[in-house]
Write a protein that binds this DNA or RNA. Structure first.
Length: 493
RNA sequence: GGCGGCGUACCCAAGUGGUUAAGGGAGCAGUCUGCAAAACUGCCAUUCAGCGGUUCAAAUCCGCUCGCCGCCUCCA
């Protein structure tokens, strides 16, 4: 099956074929404007394109992936002046914070991570070329792009210039020939970061920096350009206009991909509502794998609603997953050789259908159910696995069970390679979770001992009260044949 | 007003023309347990917002109605 991708430009699912006809893929994704801590919405975009990047690589494409930092912009300048710090310093601080958040989420590092401020030369060059081709004009130190000159302006967003004009809410700027024209270069105001240019000291406008970074790091025409849904207009529309006008090559990007938004309790996340959820706050409270599972649990183009329970649900699901893997390892083998899967499995089919990660997750859990059922049946029928040293050539029935379990694990492993979920060992997963509690492990161990003494003395009342007490602090005890174990509370009220 | 999207069980969410409508969470029952918890197993949508139409066949295509949302201004 071939990979199908929904293209915002054509509003259709299309078979994916790179522009170079080979295996090389050029992919550019709009990264953050670094003026504040990144929120769960940034995480969704980053994780979605991380999975797309990894999956393309998994399919054998040689992907060159660029994700930028917009590190010069009005918001950065305003924020810096509020805090009384240098704009560059502020931007650097939030670049570091973003990188740390991405690392914590297990997002692969893109091949290129350009910064707008390191691409000023290309921005000036691009702007000059647009002026030379009459697509742009200067006015009092500013340079504007003339939106009306390119006939196909609006092709990505489906907008029509005259209708935009009618309902225009854009600032009227006397220096502009047309209110819809946008700034390629802004003359510096006192105290603002500025670079020398043929039009005097200034800084790049929004939109142009992405074109410049893309053009200089990937090329005149790329395969995939991604970003959040909100960037379709005006950002990506303008990027297309200026890039295609400058290079004369159409299309600038063959496939345009846009991820949906994260809402918080059905409401759009915004500073004014005060419901912005920072990545690091979320990661403080939840396992990173659960956060990814939550983000990938619905299709990347759909809106995704965050509620206080949604990540806990993902956590509960992950526990079941790792408990099963642990069971396979403990009961059935330590020496499973994971065979290469042939193409055409449910995981690949789902991913090939516009990166349907929710479908992949469904397929994985279906296999998890199968694995448990197999192990139950095998145990009931007497094929319970013994250590390999005891049973060098297992009976036929057991061999069949092992074979099936191997296939199931291979499928999970394959999914984990591009999902970035399901890839831990059970030990790693449960160990990570144990660090997420307020009571010290020593204290917990002491209380477990106290409780077990009470239990031996049949003082169940005391035993139960210790258990309840710990549970209220988020620590759940489990009495197993091997002794009492503990973990952080899984279920939620 | 223009453009686009969505409505699948208690909640989340796949499926977009053809066997019994994935999967997760919650719930209930069973096994296990001192009792629990966890785990596992089983059960949980004759039906896909509503109404018409196309078709041998529709949750899936078309039309209408109702409801919700995004973009059009900075935003992932």
């Amino acid at each position: 099956m071939t990979l199908k991708i929904y293209n915002s430009l054509t509003r259709k699912k299309e078979d994916f074929s790179p522009i170079g006809n080979g295996k090389d893929v050029l992919m550019y994704v709009c990264g953050p404007t670094v003026y504040a801590l990144s929120h769960i919405g940034h995480a969704r975009s980053a994780v979605a394109f991380d999975v797309i990047y990894r999956y393309l690589s998994h399919k054998g494409y040689k992907v060159k992936y660029a994700r930028n930092y917009t590190d010069v912009d009005d918001k950065i300048i305003n924020r810096a002046s509020e805090e009384g710090v240098d704009a560059k310093e502020l931007a650097e601080r939030y670049i570091r914070a973003f990188d740390a958040d991405m690392d914590a989420l297990g997002v692969a590092v893109p091949d290129v991570r350009p910064k707008a401020t390191e691409t000023i030369g290309k921005i000036i060059e691009l702007t000059q070329s647009l002026i030379a081709k009459k697509y742009a004009y200067q006015s009092n130190g500013d340079v504007f792009y003339s939106v009306r000159l390119k006939k196909d302006y609006g092709k990505l967003s489906g907008k029509n210039i005259d209708e935009l004009e009618a309902g225009a809410r854009v600032d009227v700027n006397e220096d502009k020939l047309d209110p819809l024209d946008f700034a390629l270069w802004k003359a510096a105001k006192p105290g603002e970061p500025a670079w020398d240019s043929p039009w005097g000291p200034g800084r790049p406008g929004w939109h142009v920096e992405c074109s410049a970074m893309c053009l200089s790091h990937l090329g005149d025409a790329i395969d995939i350009h991604g970003g959040g849904r909100d960037l379709i207009f005006p950002h990506h529309e303008n990027e297309i206009a200026q890039s295609e006008a400058a290079t004369g090559k159409t299309p600038f990007a063959k496939y345009w991909l846009h991820n949906g938004f994260v809402n918080v309790a059905k409401e759009k996340m915004s500073k004014s509502v005060g419901n912005v959820l920072n990545i690091r706050d979320v990661l403080q409270a939840h396992d990173k794998e659960a956060v990814r599972l939550f983000l990938l649990g619905s299709h990347y183009r759909s809106p995704l609603d965050y509620t206080k329970d949604s990540i806990k649900e993902a956590e509960a699901a992950l526990e079941r997953f790792y408990k099963t893997i642990q069971r396979i390892e403990e009961e059935w083998t330590a020496d499973i050789i994971v065979p290469a899967l042939q193409r055409g499995n449910a995981v690949i089919d789902a991913m090939d259908d516009d990166f349907n990660t929710a479908g992949v997750i469904g397929a994985v859990f279906k296999e998890i159910n199968r694995a448990n059922k197999l192990m139950d049946e095998a145990t009931d029928s007497g094929y319970k696995r013994q250590p390999a040293t005891v049973l060098p050539s297992p009976p036929r029935g057991e061999g069949r069970v092992r074979g099936k379990l191997e296939t199931i694990r291979a499928l999970c492993k394959e999914a984990s390679s591009f999902l970035g979920v399901f890839g831990s060992t059970p030990e790693e997963f449960f160990k990570r979770r144990k660090t997420q509690t307020d009571v010290s492990p020593e204290e917990i161990e002491r209380l477990i001992e106290e409780r077990n003494t009470a239990r031996r003395g049949k003082d169940f009342k005391k035993a139960d009260s210790i258990r309840t007490e710990l549970l209220e602090k988020g620590v759940a005890l489990e009495d197993t044949p091997k002794g009492t174990t503990w973990g952080v509370k899984r279920r939620f009220p």
